[in-house]
Design a protein around this nucleic acid. Structure first.
Lengths: 215, 215
DNA sequence: CCGAAGCGGAAGGTATTCGTCCACTGCGAT
DNA sequence: ATCGCAGTGGACGAATACCTTCCGCTTCGG
């Protein structure tokens, strides 16, 4: 319904639209769904005018980004589910693709602003629910395998990863506070010795944090 | 020198000043050092005028908050160091006091804005360095005890905790990206089964994340 | 080669925040 | 008890940041 305006697009327009979507995706992921529209336009290499003609307002853009991203994540998740035999491995693989996943989680559950926008779109909701279902499956499976600690839920994991790069908000202050404490607990366990996977790169020291005279 | 204007303050003024500081601390911790001044004033139960007379501009407030908070954390850290025999326990205890610590870390290393402000104040710098020294000691000790994985540095830990609730920025995109991957690694280990401490509260599920019609 | 679709970015409108200013309040010294 | 001055709050004008529209120019593609 609503026709599919994407097919009727001139070649270059189509290309621009895709670039906008890509730019918005990475910028939303990095800085949340409230960044200035112009920043997105610049990152996409187009003028604001172009952006606004393709997506009438910010809400439309957020919706489009969410759709696109959710679809991708859902496909990934299903692929992983098909390829991996262990649920824990599946979960781990999915989480490691955190760039895409993070954005989904953020839009779907963490960003108040985005949440309101997306709630109104049934298509998006459906996708979201499908993704959550797959995730829940992974979590349950991994627990059954004894690889995932029993005392976390898929919500814990979602929050943990969404807040990795962005701030946290939640239903109520109570839940938020509890979530915070639990994240700390999880990370402490992650830090404590022994059964660790090797970390990439090298240890980051206090020095790495100073911006120095970085110019 | 610069006198100590705090001693010359009338009783009620002094009280207000403290309330402002406390409010600013908790709000900065939750939302970063760029929140509207009025929000801080409201939280402190005073007018903006009062806030501005006590702290001429935002920078002054940030500096004052940093000083106050750093001092507190440093005292805590030293107390802990004196009381705990195990460095790992000391580290863990320090990290669990994450509200105060998080703000310090955020101001000291993560928030670009705050960093610039604080760099210009030698007093603040000195405090900051002292805290880092204590932290480094804990980390080294905990490693020696075999309780902390060898492949993390105090910077890893700082970032992990600062970004728990706030977004991450770093010296260079390279470091930031590496840091992100390492955090994921750490958290995955934290999630993976076995040698876990019990988490507080109850598992958070996907349901807890929906704001529903939260009224 | 031409018409129409597409484009960029300047410009106007709006919302948000800053920081000042001043009439009023109440602490505390005498 | 009185009084002067430190202290207070919040309205207000300026400054900024952002959104969105509009229109003259460019480029596709038939």
């Amino acid at each position: 319904m609503t026709a599919d305006p994407e097919t009727t697009l001139r070649a270059d327009a189509r290309r621009n639209r895709d670039q906008i979507l890509a730019a918005a995706k990475s910028i939303f992921a990095a800085s949340g769904p409230e960044v200035p529209m112009e920043e997105i336009a610049r990152a996409a290499g187009v003028g604001v005018g172009t952006l606004y003609r393709r997506f009438p307002d910010r809400d439309a853009l957020v919706r489009a980004v969410a759709m696109d991203n959710f679809e991708r994540v859902l496909i990934d998740a299903k692929t992983i589910a098909a390829e991996e035999t262990s649920a824990w491995c599946a979960l781990e693989r999915l989480l490691r693709q955190s760039v895409a996943l993070q954005l989904s989680v953020q839009l779907a559950m963490v960003s108040q602003r985005a949440l309101v926008i997306l709630k109104s779109d049934p298509q998006v909701r459906r996708l979201r629910d499908e993704i959550l279902a797959v995730l829940d499956g992974f979590v349950a499976g991994a627990k059954a395998e004894g690889k995932l600690r029993e005392d976390v839920g898929s919500g814990d994991i979602a929050i943990l990863f969404a807040t990795l790069l962005r701030q946290m908000r939640a239903k109520s202050p109570d839940v938020a506070e509890m979530a915070a404490r639990r994240c700390v607990g999880i990370m402490i366990d992650g830090l404590s010795a022994r059964p660790g996977t090797e970390l990439p790169g090298r240890p980051i020291t206090s020095h790495d944090l100073d911006p120095e005279d970085h110019g």
